[in-house]
Design a protein around this nucleic acid. Structure first.
Lengths: 256, 256
DNA sequence: AAGTGGTCTAGACCACTAA
DNA sequence: TAGTGGTCTAGACCACTTT
């Protein structure tokens, strides 16, 4: 046994080496537990503890039915938050079809099939959103909650919140994609002059993991964009949950 | 036993409820394993498996010496990437003391004690950095690797890479803080006209976890900023590893 | 039917820390 | 010294999938 390592750590160390060296490539099956038990002469739970270390590092996923596999991620979707806001201002209108919103059309341009499940409701927003929108303690918000799929795989949760008085009675209250030149806010006569993005990184909640079908040890970025009008009044707050294994966030900025 | 739950999940469910309801607050100790064994009548490994589910969710940390505790995070350091680049242009010079770099002075303004360990070396950069700097396959880079501490707790890893020919023989090659109006690039006569930020989210490598003293289930953001001159030539690539439990990333953008 | 992993038990020994 | 958790074992039973 290696110096200063438990037996489980030794198993993890050996497997990690094989993975990092490419000897075990992404998608390959790990040796079975019984194989490793006889190879090392360790008990089953010890072998399992070793493999669990790699699962917690995100290097190994456990196939539903049987077998454990070296984790293999699809190339991440690049999410350009800089151009997302401005792209629609320059876009030519799409004729003869429902173009969907900015996200959906960006995905379509890439040759993939976007889909969103949208539910609209009037809610007491979560504390963080309430702060962003500068709502009073009893202020209500219109929430548009979406689950975004690409090629029928879940990719992100995107919940938009609007101060109720700004949007009641507008198309924003309908649970459908909203496509409009200038973006969803422009469609109800609001102009966004500034935005503020906040990104934090954490493990998903149980619910988020379930909705997004996340493998073990998949962290998420919580991206909150608050949009303001020219007077600095908050118009919208969008909270997006981006799984780390399928997203890359991009900003492009010209230094003035 | 609850329907559709294993015993371990039941234990996790109960504890999670107590944590989310505030009945168990941040920093509180969980009941001991033996207490829960007699409370539930389950074996020790089963109880431990239940608690492990919460550890993997990032809700529970296992105290160094003994005891398990509800996770309690310090308020995150807000990292404003928009102003970090421009702040130094407007900053008044600090007289009579070594001001450190932009990061250090931002932390000091907040009343905390920054510290960095810097090592400078000439390296073959990692593939991702090579791409960002548009270096040929055998191109070398000057690497400034820093470990950043606040009040003697590690906060981030920040590795900057410069194309070798741009900086050889400049103060950038010395392993010291570089403080200059206009930023570190200006100090060697380079002007950054544009930058491009890439953020991805993942679990830390073993090494990162060790350098940053990360608790279990602490994901990180890998932030890569590439700076370009007015002709679009890459000047610098900075890779920052930001632990999710102590950072929040901020961007503030005026829609043009 | 054979092989996989998932769950669970009842022990054991150890290192550490607090009283 | 008593109590904590960390590691490890040798079983067992189960659900699932592949052949």
């Amino acid at each position: 046994m290696r110096r200063g390592m438990t037996k489980a750590q030794e198993v993890a160390y050996d497997l990690r080496e094989q993975i990092e060296s490419g000897q075990l490539a992404g998608g390959d099956a790990l040796p079975s537990e019984s194989k490793m038990m006889s190879q090392y002469g360790y008990s089953r739970e010890t072998i399992r503890a070793g493999v669990r270390l790699l699962i917690d590092e995100g290097l190994v996923v456990t196939g539903q039915g049987q077998g454990k596999y070296v984790r293999e991620d699809y190339p991440p979707v690049v999410w350009n938050w800089t151009t997302l806001e401005s792209r629609s201002r320059h876009a030519t209108a799409v004729e003869g079809q429902t173009a969907g919103d900015q996200w959906a059309s960006a995905i379509e341009e890439n040759g993939n099939a976007p889909r969103q499940e949208i539910t609209v409701s009037i809610v007491e927003p979560p504390a963080h959103v309430r702060e962003c929108l500068e709502l009073p303690a009893d202020g209500l918000a219109v929430a548009r909650k979406r689950i975004r799929y690409i090629d029928n795989r879940p990719y992100a949760l995107a919940d938009s919140y609007f101060p109720q008085e700004l949007v009641s009675g507008t198309p924003l209250m309908e649970p459908r994609d909203v496509s409009a030149p200038g973006g969803i806010l422009a469609s109800v006569g609001l102009v966004q002059a500034k935005y503020r993005d906040e990104i934090s990184v954490r493990m998903p909640t149980r619910q988020e993991a379930e909705l997004l079908a996340l493998p073990a040890a998949t962290p998420i970025a919580e991206h909150t964009r608050t949009g303001y009008d020219a007077d600095g009044r908050p118009l919208r707050c969008m909270v997006t949950i981006l799984p780390g294994d399928r997203h890359k966030i991009l900003y492009e900025v010209d230094t003035d």
